[in-house]
Design a protein around this nucleic acid. Sequence first.
DNA 1: CAGTGGTCTAGACCACGCT
DNA 2: GCGTGGTCTAGACCACTGG
Lengths: 241, 241
Amino acid sequence: MNASAEPAYLKIKNELLNRIRQGELRPGDKIDHEEVMAKQFSCARATVHRAIRELAEEGFVERKRRAGTRVASAGTRSTRVTIPLVRQEIEARGASYRFKMLEQIKAVPTGMASAALGLDPKASALFLKSIHFADDTPFQLEERWINLDMVPQAADASFETINPNEWLVQTSPYSEAEHFFSAENADKEQSDLLGLNTGDALFVIERRTHLNGNAITYARLMHPGANYRMAAKNFSFSTKN
Amino acid sequence: MNASAEPAYLKIKNELLNRIRQGELRPGDKIDHEEVMAKQFSCARATVHRAIRELAEEGFVERKRRAGTRVASAGTRSTRVTIPLVRQEIEARGASYRFKMLEQIKAVPTGMASAALGLDPKASALFLKSIHFADDTPFQLEERWINLDMVPQAADASFETINPNEWLVQTSPYSEAEHFFSAENADKEQSDLLGLNTGDALFVIERRTHLNGNAITYARLMHPGANYRMAAKNFSFSTKN
DNA sequence: CAGTGGTCTAGACCACGCT
DNA sequence: GCGTGGTCTAGACCACTGG
């Protein structure tokens, strides 16, 4: 808690954050240039730069070359979420992990999956359905499409001992990932597999990965809503990290 | 797409990312020290530092002083999500925003709210219930507790023209925010207010903010699952930002 | 075209925490 | 203790873009 223990770039960051929060700096206001602030805080421009860059990454300010830095429209908070591997998540709860493949076929994707993969409408891909257990209680139902153009080895892969996600992580690099979170009501099949009642809320994570613009995989990870909660902590200031 | 246009720190980052993804560097492996890598890449240590720092922030590697930098256990992806203000979210959809206060009373919090606020079990707080509309269609049901010890002005505030969240953002700074995402089935009251059927899936965002260890507010933001989807994009490499 | 942010260098000192 | 990462400086050049 020693004041001098706090790095200079955090002091600057917090100082600006306070001014923004207390309304001294309002959305749309321009803040001082890096060079000016460096003089104000008696430090190097690089130090100021880091402070403001982090504020920009966190959505508090918007930067444009030549135009300067402005306070972003209020209230847009961004936070970091971690999407863990099922196995790790289950083992972290002190349960034993087990999974079971339910389906593994080549098929032509339809609807959401088709759109997500962005393949030729007639092209087929690998479809995998599996369920993940925590101590023999269903924890996650996984439906996954894999683009065989990008990952041809998947066609002959066996998912006896390693689950599709972990196999994919080890096999195929990706350049871009998208995640979507949503809530749905379980249909008959989903609820049967997850040991729920039809209509029970599901917490759904969708993941889509690409490599250089080509889809690698699209997955839907469905969890019983009753025992799933995704957490995100965000220290806005006065802390490291 | 010009290769030379890519900053050096990103080249280093992507190079390491590729090695990790292709299994050349496996979880637990130690990677070269900053100084060594600076020589390998013929650049300053600060440049290497930035590359590795970002990898650490994104969860790909773990750093410890003296012990060095190691590849994190595979697959732990972290991504940034933005939690927008309701009003902005609704207006971004091209709809007009309107909200209505349903309840505004001083009461003793119970259950989750009590735990979240961490107040004296007998202490009362301000409870607010409101609903937010997109073009007269219910979009979000909000239940919020405000700690009056920290924000005494809330007791006399009127939420006729400004909604509780926006009022709070303008009024009270905070140092720490936590968010939780989950899926629940709507009960009778919730479904009536949101224009749904009982049992329909809700996408719930819980937000808790603190200032120096003292709770400011705890809010539950409930959305009809059928038309709510929270998105997170994450460019792992080969892109800026 | 000129001002702003974005990146980079070649040093330096310090704090932490393995060994 | 000592090696590692964490931070910082005082410069520099460049890229973008708004005026």
